[in-house]
């Protein structure tokens, strides 16, 4: 099992919802209706840029009970690898795209007594479907949503209208920050915290929860990074006896795919573990950018997640 199933969808609506954020509504363009999904799920969107194929994961934002369309939101990131730029500049109503079936690596813990959702900026997206599911189940939840300004906060008004006092918005330009220590104090036993946003914010939230004595099992995070850019290097493959050059804006996985080499993958965000690959030798240092390998595994230098990680150096030899 390597690649995931692809579906063809058509863009039915594009709506700017905040500065630099557009929402896309996707409807089925093949013979099958869209699949049901669970709160916290994402799909991977394939973008055929002129020079290469980009595949980025985006959280599904609609209500899980409504599968007449899928909704995703994309923040335009300047100076990135081009996925968000492609969605903003080249995708319009009527465009057909290929997407994967929904995958959920960020599900709410159904046994939780209470759910504390912590979002930063575009990190709000997985919580949109999650709140829909929790509301339908009658679960206890609250959202703490930090944005730069009201203009950057997609969906603030909509969420407040829908969920009322359970929504707490913090405007950075007003000097408001999420008072996480206070939020996490005195929550009922069995509460779970979920955080999604930029990496520094996730690190801060996880650290804050740990320092407050929260068990690891009750803390969840999701972060979709694009594979970080770097310098080119060479990948040598022991099984197929080939050498592939990885460009500065490419991941190892993308370079392999461009050269027609089949490698396993699923989430393409360093979270699911599907693309774990054994390292036979490395002439350089591995830059581990995944959330999957343990610190000890990273330090051993024997494993690499090829969707996210690269090396600084000349060449790496993989068992592929």
């Amino acid at each position: 099992m390597t690649a995931s199933f692809l579906r063809t969808v058509r863009v039915a609506e594009v709506e700017p919802v905040a500065s630099r954020i557009k929402r896309f509504r996707l409807v089925s363009a093949d013979s099958q209706p869209l699949s049901e999904f669970s709160g916290g799920s994402h799909v991977t969107v394939c973008m055929k840029a002129p020079d290469r194929l980009i595949r980025n994961p985006y959280s599904l934002m609609g209500s899980p009970s409504d599968t007449s369309s899928y909704q995703i939101s994309v923040l335009k990131v300047e100076g990135s690898r081009g996925g968000s730029e492609f969605m903003h500049e080249r995708v319009e109503v009527g465009t057909e795209l290929e997407i994967s079936e929904p995958l959920n690596l960020f599900p709410p813990a159904k046994i939780a007594r209470k759910h504390i959702l912590v979002a930063g900026g575009i990190g709000i997206t997985p919580f949109m479907s999650m709140m829909g599911e929790l509301e339908a189940l009658g679960a206890d939840f609250e959202l703490h949503y930090g944005v730069r300004s009201l203009g950057d906060g997609a969906f603030c008004k909509l969420l407040e209208a829908r969920y009322g006092k359970r929504i707490h918005v913090y405007l950075q330009d007003q000097g408001q920050l999420i008072p996480l220590e206070r939020v996490l104090a005195n929550q009922p036993l069995g509460s779970h915290m979920y955080v999604c946003g930029p990496k520094p914010m996730i690190d801060w939230a996880l650290r804050t929860a740990t320092l407050a004595g929260w068990p690891d099992e009750n803390i969840h995070s999701e972060q979709f990074n694009a594979p970080p850019i770097g310098k080119p290097f060479v990948v040598k493959l022991t099984k197929s006896k080939r050498e592939v050059r990885v460009g500065g804006h490419q991941s190892i996985l993308e370079a392999l795919e461009q050269n027609g080499i089949d490698a396993p993958f699923l989430c393409r965000g360093g979270a699911c573990g599907q693309c774990e690959t054994s390292v036979a030798a490395c002439d350089g240092f591995i830059e581990h950018n995944d959330h999957y390998l343990s610190d000890a595994e990273k330090a051993s230098g024997k494993k690499i997640m090829i969707c996210m990680s690269r090396i600084s150096g000349d060449a790496i030899t993989l068992d592929l």
Binding site: M1, S4, F5, S35, E101, P102, L266, C272, G273
Partner: peptide, 11 residues
């Protein structure tokens, strides 16, 4: 277990 955790709907 690793395989099952990544199972996809429809497969």
């Amino acid at each position: 277990l690793k395989f099952l955790l990544n199972m996809q709907h429809g497969r």
